[in-house]
């Protein structure tokens, strides 16, 4: 089976039951994508598929052949951080760092959704064409990523700063 991950092609055979998450972690040693519940209930495994955020733990890898998969390793490296990664460091948007890759990938996907005009459940006017991402909007849209260390304030500050810079 052929996979495109962070711009590189991988030809790989595996047990058909393998999740996209385990494919990344156990077969490709791309361990930046984390396993927190394996049930779609924590968001630590969030990756981007064709730019959309999904939970890799609920994805059977076989369903994602040929799609453009981006993981945290594809966003930036310690020496060349993505703007969101750098903002997470600056705003201390993490403590243990385990949910962090998922939070960051999720924020990248969220930004794309926002640019597309996707509403959220806290959007007052669903018919609006432009939705300002205020504090509630950001918090709701990031609620699929749990953080147990309680870095929520720093995470939202980091995301808000990067989105504001993008908009400027």
């Amino acid at each position: 089976m052929r996979f495109s991950i962070n711009g590189a092609d991988h030809e790989i055979d595996f047990d058909i039951r393998t999740s996209l998450l385990d494919l990344l972690r156990e077969h490709l040693q791309l361990t930046g994508t984390k396993k927190g519940c394996d049930q779609g209930a924590c968001g630590a495994c969030t990756v981007l598929v064709d730019g959309e955020r999904i939970n890799a733990c609920l994805a059977l890898a076989v369903q994602y052949q040929g799609r453009a998969i981006t993981t945290i390793e594809g966003l930036g490296t310690p020496g060349h951080l993505h703007a969101l990664q750098a903002a997470f460091v600056e705003h201390d948007g993490f403590q243990c760092g385990y949910c962090t890759p998922g939070q960051i990938c999720s924020a990248v996907g969220m930004a794309a959704e926002a640019r597309r005009g996707v509403p959220s459940v806290v959007t007052a006017d669903l018919a609006a064409t432009q939705i300002a991402l205020d504090h509630d909007e950001l918090r709701e849209r990031m609620s699929g990523n749990l953080c147990r260390c309680g870095a929520h304030n720093g995470i939202i500050d980091a995301v808000r700063q990067v989105l504001a810079r993008e908009a400027a």
Binding site: T31, K34, I72, G79, Q85, F88, D92, T100
Partner: peptide, 21 residues
């Protein structure tokens, strides 16, 4: 001071117990 291990963590390069091959 920002976390010294911050860049590793945000880049997914900090290796946790289940990630040692």
């Amino acid at each position: 001071v920002s976390r010294i291990d911050g860049p590793l963590k945000v880049a997914g390069q900090a290796r946790f117990a289940a990630e040692v091959s």
